[in-house]
């Protein structure tokens, strides 16, 4: 029962992946990708969690107080901001496909050339 938070991360990943595979709209696909990305954030933060731990910011709390892992938080916070720009790149690809083929349906853009 104490592995449920990790199962939440797996559930988010699978739901996002199912959304990507069954999507009929490239923009909807990009937003489903953000759900998949959030699975990685949840997994990182739940792995680093210490029971009854404080945040790893030692202003106002004494230095020896139990705190959660700072490394996974550093990874997560840069990843959150950078993934916005990567999703913007994916949306730009979708707009380019729309410009060349006239549709945002992933199954409808299969015959573009040049």
């Amino acid at each position: 029962m104490s592995y449920l938070p990790y199962a939440v991360a797996a559930w988010l990943f699978l739901v996002g992946l199912a959304g990507v595979a069954t999507s009929k709209n490239l923009i909807h696909l990009a937003v489903c990708l953000t759900v998949t990305q959030s699975a990685s954030y949840v997994l990182l933060l739940t792995v680093g969690y210490v029971k009854h731990g404080n945040a790893p910011i030692f202003k106002g709390i004494p230095l020896g107080a139990p705190a959660v892992d700072p490394v996974v938080q550093a990874l997560t916070l840069t990843d959150v901001v950078v993934s916005v720009v990567v999703v913007a790149l994916i949306l730009a690809l979708a707009l380019d496909a729309h410009r060349l083929s006239g549709t945002v349906d992933p199954d409808g853009i299969a015959d573009i050339s040049g």
Partner: peptide
């Protein structure tokens, strides 16, 4: 595969790795 991987993790809240504790100190 996820279930197999999760079974190998420490339980939620019992972070064991020394890196985080060392950094906090």
């Amino acid at each position: 595969l996820f279930a197999w991987a999760i079974a190998g993790l420490p339980p939620f809240g019992e972070y064991r790795g020394p890196y985080g504790f060392v950094l906090n100190q």
